[in-house]
Every structure is written in structure tokens, then in C-alpha cells.
Design a protein around this nucleic acid. Structure first.
Lengths: 345, 345
DNA sequence: GATGGATGAGTAACCGCTCTCTGAACGGCC
DNA sequence: GGCCGTTCAGAGAGCGGTTACTCATCCATC
């Protein structure tokens, strides 16, 4: 491939387009490759005049050490990976954003892999992503415990987000969706609502299951629950809203804010007033829902924290220092204008 | 570091925790490393019984070739990088999402670097990111032409998004913001508006400059323009809206949809009806603005296309086949409910 | 039966860097 | 002046793969 024929006696003046490697710099500065390496990394002492020569040669040749070669030699890449089930989801985008930022402060780069909800590929993708770098942030809410546990040794060091693995040594960051739901219920029941709808997110969503389970176990005694399959996007909420009018509920709990917003919008079109005739609650507290009409009552999930917290744990793990304890984020109910007393009829 | 003392004559049954490399597999299968490599890559013929032995050994040991070592040997990493000025910006999130998806189809992974609008660091970051992989998608709208031109040879192959570099050989994808603005103007002028406000985005935004310039050159003869510094988020639009009532405009063009939505929300609170008293226009056509109240008139930017288009060009560049021509995306005006005839007073 | 051409496995160089180990040079000390 | 301890540059062995080249083997051909 690189059969560069040294086609003449002249060597020094015309290095042609020989790739700029450490060897070239070494020759140019008339020192050994080891010395160049030492100068570039600055960890060992090198005589000043040699160091200068090396730096100048490097400068002139535009030398920049190859990260790939360094990675191999050092056994360290300076990269961490994040695997998500759906990069289109604002939740993961938010985590990614903050994670990139936090890792960047330590001069680490982020490799992102999207499994696209493909459960078959996910384990292979996780392994592959992990092997390309030094650590992994894993968002794989649907991967079976069994499989994850089997995978764990090959992924280490890694941090788990938004899913638990009993007895796993991996640091774990979760969100207490149940608590969020319970807060919503308390709020709605306090307002006199006794018949509620839940607009379910995708089956594929683990957090949807968590919400659903909490709702089901609470339902029955104090209130009736109607489950409506829906989705995770504006459009889903918008189109499901028509069904709400038929089923005679006074409040609706949406899978997330986007859905809630879609509902709000459609109810407005239908001339149903919120909250006078119907209360609507979202989930996540994404940025703009405080500006909807009416502003949305929702449960605030501290998404911004997840990225940095994940990083600090992964970083600790990689340095083999003690890692901070797991945290389960407690969402906070934000009561705004979209909920009110149940209409009496 | 790995001073594994071979502390006994027994070797075969207890390989201890020796790292699983190609050498280990070779020994286990009693073949050469070359043969293992050939089996793993499947490009050259290997006798079936040997291949089986290798595969079995690999399987038992849980061998997986090291991507880093392969990268070095092959001179190919299977990674491309994307450098953005702000990962928090939905525009870049959208591009990233689709780019990851497209690259993933070819089994490439995405490395993401966020310059955080830091112009000093940007060139170094670009070079570093590029050297870690096989190609680069560069979103650096504010980098001076001069500097970018100087950098170009060291970044190649790369694709430029949302900025042009005259005479550069790099494929370039841009959005014709000017055309979008002109469409908006035509629409508003047709409705009789003669005094408009523009809510400016961040100074740091190149696309803001493009919009502003078009507006300024058009203003004067047919309409008056009032520029209001604003920002790029809901909150910015929400808080700037109060100023709108004082300056006696009949229509407002927001930097983007988020800002427009903030304005809509605040105007509603102030009891100013849209579009009867004030028309509002956004920019981008992000998903939910068709559901605002009233639905937002905006300019639709085909964000979903940018990622795949960038990938296909980068991919062509990397294979050294002919790349598709540059494209300048033409936004499309989406007239919805937030604009209407100028109030006569 | 000798020869020639396939076939396919092994050898070893290489990718570009790091780092241990070796040994030369130097200075201080007795 | 010889000895020893430092200091610091170079030699070379990795890191974990790939692959050009060599060479043994086997089969077909004359």
C-alpha cells in the first residue's frame, strides 16, 4: 500500500509527502522517537536545547500525535460512549448535551450510538461502542435484566441511566416515576377528580410501564382509571383528544408534556375549556410548557442533572476512586393553570 | 504494568485473566495469528476445519477484535465526527440525530464535539476530533473564512454545514435563510403590514445575521423595520413581547419558532389577540408549532434532510467516489393561523 | 514420475506511539 | 584520580491487530 520507493540518494531536502509521524519529527530534530514522545507529553525531563529542537521540528512539519496510535499504546482513548434507544427523544438529547459538556471539561469526547429501539442489536452495539472507548453510559430501559447482567462484565466501567439492575455494581441514576405519578394523583384527587384517563406512551418505554403500574395499583378505591393507548409526540396527543370527550373523565394524565400539549391544543379546537371542563397534566416539565395556554401542570424531572451526574460517576470509575452513591431523582409537581377543581355535574 | 508471572509449568488449563487478544485465540486454536485474523474478517479462504477451530476458540474465550488496534492497522476507524457550536440547539440536535442514523446504516459511529461557541478552541477541537476518526461534519458558522481555509487540508475529508467557504472543495449544505425571510416579507406585505418587528437571535448566530441582513436591505421603501434584541428560547420571546405593544408594529418576525411561541404565549396573557391585533411569524417549523394556539405561520426548514445529505457526501468523499453536488435548501413558507390582515386604525 | 500451478497457512514487517531498560556522560566526593 | 550516583537520551519491546511475502502441500498435466 505505501510502497514509497526511495528513488534517489537525496533524502534530507525532499521528504516528499511522507506522512508526518513521530519518526519524521525525530529525524528532523535528529533525536530518537522516544525523545520526541517525551517532549510532546512533557512528563519526563528533556534537555532544553533538545526540547526546543523537537518543538520547532514538530511545529514546522505540523506534527500532531496520532490519537489512534496513542490509544493503542496507552490503553486509553479519551473517549466515552453513550448508547441510547432513540436519539430523537428530547430526554436523551438533553442527557447527551450535558454529558458531552461535562466530559469535555475533562477533555473526553463522546461517542454516540443509537440502537433505534432495536433489541436484537442492542447488546452487540453496546459491546462495540464500549470497546471503542474507555467507558459507557448505558440507556437501555428495555434490555432484559438477565441479558444485561450477562453483559455487564464486558461493559465495565459503565453507568446505568433510567433503569435498575438489582445487585449490579454499576452506578445507577434513576428517576422515581412512581413518586411523580403519586404526586399527580394526590393533586387531582384533592381537586375532586374521581375518573381519570391515562394516555399511555409507547409499550417500548420502560418509564411508561413504571407510570402505568403505579396508576393501576392505586386505581379502584378512590378513583376510576381509563387507559388510552397514545404515544409520545404532539400528534399523538392531538389525535387522541377526541376520544376523551366520550369517556366521561374529568382529568387526563399524559405520558409526557408533548402529548399533554397535543391534548391541550385539540381540546381548545373542540371548544372544551381547560381546566374548567377538563384538567390536563403532563410529565417532564420541558422548557416551554410553562408558556402553553393555559400553562401546563406537570411533574418536573431534573434532566439537566443526569448528564453531569453520570459523567462524574463514570469518571470516578475510570480513575478507580470511590464513586458517589446512586441517586434516584425525585420529580417535583409543578402546579400551573391546566388543572382545577373537578366540574360538578 | 502487566507483569504476569508465569508461576508454574501448567499453562493450558488456566490462562488466568490474560487479556483476550488475537494471540490468545491463536494459541487456543493452535493456529497463527494471521489465520485468526483471516477467519474474523472472512476475506481470505481458510480451510473449514481450521476456521471452525478458530471460531470455536473465539467463541469460548469471548474474543472480540480490538477496534483501536484495527483502526491503527487499517488506517480506518469506522467513526466520523461532528463538531457543533452548541449541542443545546435543536437544530444541531436534529442534524445529529439523522446523521447518527444515516452513518449507523453503514456501521459508522458518531463522535460529537461541542465547541460551546468558543472560537479560540474551535480549530484545535476540529483538528483533534478529525484525527480521531475518518471524516468530519463541521458546523462552525462563525469561524473566519481565513482560518477555515487554512484548516481545511487538515480536516479533509469533511462536509460543511450551514456556512459557505468560497472556492472550498468541501461539499457544502446550506439553508437559504434569505429566501425564507423574503417569503415571510412577501406574505406580510401582502396582508397589508407596513411596520414590522424582528426579534433578533444571538449575535453569535450566523443565521441570525443572514436574516437580519436580508431584512435590512429590504426595509425602508415598503415597510419600516424595528429590531429588538431577543434570543433563541421560549423565555426570550415571552419576555420581549411586552415591548411589542409600545412600538406600534402590526407584525412580528421571530428569530425562530421557540421565540415566536414565547411571544404568542405572552400576547395571550396580555389580551392581545393574534392575528387580529398582531401577526406573528416563526422560523424552522419545529414539530409542535402547528399545534399552538393559533397555529404558527412559519418557514419550514428541512432539518431532517441535512443529516442524511451530509452523510452521503462524507461517505462518498471517504470512498473517493464522486460526491453529489452542493445543495442550498430552500425553506418553504407555511401559512397558518398566526398571521392575518393588518389591523386598520 | 517429474513438473508446474494453485491453494492456503505461517512468518514477520508494519501501523504510530509509549515506556522500560540500558548505558553513556557528567559531577561530586573521598 | 578513581568511584559512585545521577541524569537523561536511545534502543527496543510492546499495544493488538493486518497483510505482503514465503513456502510447503497437493493435484493436475504431460
Amino acid at each position: 500500500m505505501s510502497n514509497r520507493s526511495l528513488n534517489g540518494p537525496r533524502e534530507d531536502p525532499a521528504p516528499a509527502n511522507e506522512p508526518v509521524t513521530i519518526g519524521l519529527v525525530a529525524r528532523a530534530a535528529n533525536v530518537s522517537r522516544a525523545t520526541v514522545s517525551r517532549v510532546m507529553n512533557g512528563n519526563t525531563k528533556v534537555a532544553p536545547h533538545l526540547a526546543d529542537r523537537v518543538r520547532q521540528a514538530a511545529q514546522e512539519l505540523g506534527y500532531e500525535p496520532s490519537p489512534v496510535a496513542r490509544s493503542l499504546a496507552l490503553g486509553r482513548t479519551g473517549i466515552v460512549a453513550m448508547l441510547v434507544p432513540d436519539l430523537g427523544n428530547p430526554m436523551f438529547q438533553g442527557i447527551l448535551h450535558r454529558l458531552t459538556e461535562a466530559a469535555g471539561d475533562q477533555n473526553y469526547r463522546l461517542l454516540v450510538a443509537d440502537s433505534n429501539e432495536n433489541l436484537q442489536e442492542e447488546p452487540l452495539l453496546a459491546i462495540e461502542a464500549r470497546r471503542r472507548c474507555d467507558g459507557l453510559v448505558l440507556c437501555a430501559p428495555r434490555m432484559p435484566d438477565e441479558q444485561l447482567r450477562e453483559l455487564a462484565p464486558r461493559l465495565s466501567p459503565f453507568v446505568l441511566i433510567n433503569r435498575e439492575l438489582p445487585e449490579s455494581p454499576a452506578p445507577t441514576l434513576t428517576i422515581d416515576f412512581s413518586a411523580g405519578i403519586r404526586d399527580i394523583l394526590t393533586h387531582l384527587l384533592g381537586l375532586g377528580h374521581r375518573r381519570l384517563a391515562y394516555l399511555a406512551g409507547p409499550d417500548t418505554s420502560a418509564s411508561n410501564h413504571a407510570r402505568l403500574e403505579t396508576l393501576r395499583t392505586s386505581a379502584g378505591k378512590e378513583f376510576d382509571l381509563v387507559e388510552l393507548p397514545c404515544g409520545a409526540a404532539f400528534a399523538d396527543g392531538h389525535s387522541v383528544a377526541d376520544q376523551l370527550v366520550d369517556i366521561d373523565v374529568t382529568a387526563v394524565i399524559a405520558y409526557n408534556d408533548l402529548v399533554a400539549f397535543g391534548v391541550l391544543s385539540r381540546l381548545h379546537e373542540l371548544g372544551i375549556s381547560v381546566p374548567a371542563q377538563m384538567s390536563v397534566v403532563g410529565f417532564d416539565d420541558i422548557e416551554f410548557v410553562r408558556y402553553t395556554t393555559p400553562p401546563l401542570t406537570t411533574v418536573s424531572v431534573p434532566l439537566d442533572q443526569l448528564g453531569p451526574q453520570a459523567w462524574s460517576r463514570l469518571w470516578a470509575l475510570m480513575r478507580e476512586v470511590t464513586v458517589e452513591p446512586d441517586v434516584r431523582f425525585r420529580p417535583r409537581l409543578e402546579v400551573r393553570g391546566s388543572t382545577g377543581p373537578a366540574p360538578r355535574d
